[in-house]
Amino acid sequence: MIDSKTLTVYIDGPLNAQALDEVQEKINNLEINTGDIVVMDCTQMSYICSSGLRIFLAMHKDVTQRGSKLIIRGLQPLVKNVFDMTGFTPIFNIE
């Protein structure tokens, strides 16, 4: 755990169907090592579509499998509503 580092991913703007592929590709290119803490900073994310949630879900599964930790930070109220409504809030670490 000494070498563990914190990786912060910023998602800016609306995470809609048009932005999905780009975001997914960028996330796929991240190098995440065991023990790393990944922070998804959503302070500037104004909207999320249902497919957008899949990105968080995939990230969560991936990071958890590696024994790392995913933290979601700065959800705007509207976005938080989507997380709440779909029941995803309890399964994520949301700050």
Binding site: L57, D84, M85, T86, G87, F88, P90, I91
Partner: peptide, 9 residues
């Protein structure tokens, strides 16, 4: 009451 969407866990 909100349950998790299906297909996740």
């Amino acid at each position: 009451k909100v349950n998790l969407a299906i297909g996740v866990l």
